[in-house]
């Protein structure tokens, strides 16, 4: 967003005369057409269908039956599950990720250590998928390395209360595993935008390093931290692949419920429930991203 300004002023002082630009703008507009058509067909249309199909019954008539299903206790429970799973992993991911960013503070941005951490975080943040599920089955599955180690060395049975790793609680650790790297990626720019001059001013005026953090550092970073937290929440809320490959017992979170609705046609005796669930997800995501844009605007103040 902040990068828009210089380009815009440059455009304003452009040397081409208005007449010439006017003459060339019709073919130029045509140049935008292919991309516009592509977006219309594969972004706008699917989104509209996804939302719209929730309002249409099997015979193509308008109905509010499916949307009403969003109030069904089963569906409410799934949305609640998705919400607390996302909240919990976002909070832990944000705190641990912020600590990791703090540890990297002062390392040169182009240095070897930073590029290594950047690349590793990039890989692990994208890792949230089928392969992450495999990783955690190899780690904490019934025959996982940690499971066997705890059993043989300490006599602790991880699964004394059932194979929770294949249920909802089993998703917590894998989700944290991709949340922390995402936090590092999104929060590090804000962290390194802290100006050394502020710390110097603080020290010159008789402040302590601890005072720097409570009076300057944390207040300045708070909006960025909250913005990153919201991104993490959205990320966990929309994640599907890990859960699909890991959770074999039921459909406890919304994306899995959508899968069930798509593949078995009738959930709760209703058709087109997938559309209603998609609508619910979009509403949550829209609220989160709206909040994000508000916070981000506040955060951008200190990053110029």
């Amino acid at each position: 967003m902040t990068t828009l300004a210089p380009a815009a002023t440059r455009a304003g002082s452009g040397s081409s005369s208005p007449a010439r630009r006017g003459a060339s703008s019709v073919p130029s507009l045509l140049g935008l057409a292919p991309f516009a058509v592509y977006l219309l067909l594969f972004l706008a249309l699917p989104t509209l269908i996804a939302i719209g199909s929730g309002f249409i019954d099997d015979d193509g008539r308008l109905t509010f039956e499916n949307v009403a299903a969003l109030g069904d206790p089963v569906i409410v429970q799934t949305f609640w599950n998705s919400t607390w799973l996302s909240l919990l992993t976002a909070v832990i991911g944000a705190v641990v990720g912020a600590l990791a960013c703090y540890a990297m503070l002062g390392l040169p941005a182009g240095g070897r250590m930073r590029s290594l951490v950047d690349a590793a975080s990039g890989v692990l943040a994208q890792f949230g998928g089928v392969m992450l599920a495999f990783a955690f089955i190899a780690t904490m599955g019934l025959q996982g390395v940690v499971t066997l180690l705890l059993r043989d060395a300490f006599g602790i049975d991880l699964f004394a209360e059932g194979a929770w790793i294949y249920g909802l609680p089993g998703l917590i650790l894998p989700y944290i595993y991709f949340q922390v790297p995402l936090m590092i990626i999104t929060f590090m720019p804000a962290m390194s935008a802290l100006k050394p001059q502020w710390a110097e001013a603080n020290l010159t005026l008789g402040g302590t390093p601890f005072g720097f953090w409570t009076k300057i550092g944390l207040p300045v970073l708070a909006p960025s931290f909250f913005a990153s937290f919201l991104l993490l929440f959205a990320n966990a809320f929309s994640s599907y692949a890990t859960a699909a490959a890991l959770a074999s017992q039921g459909s406890q979170i919304v994306p899995l419920q959508i899968r069930t609705a798509l593949t078995s046609e009738t959930v709760l005796g209703r058709e087109n429930l997938a559309g209603a669930l998609a609508l619910g997800m979009i509403l949550v995501m829209a609220a989160v991203m709206w909040l994000y844009s508000l916070v981000q605007r506040r955060a951008a103040r200190w990053q110029r």
Binding site: G106, A109, P196, F212
Partner: peptide
């Protein structure tokens, strides 16, 4: 998802802070 996007945005706007700063951890 948004990971790589923000990473790219970050890497281009990231200002390199000096290694010797008062607030960096020990």
């Amino acid at each position: 998802m948004s990971a790589a996007a923000t990473r790219v945005a970050g890497s281009t706007s990231g200002s390199s802070s000096g290694a010797t700063t008062g607030y960096a951890p020990g």
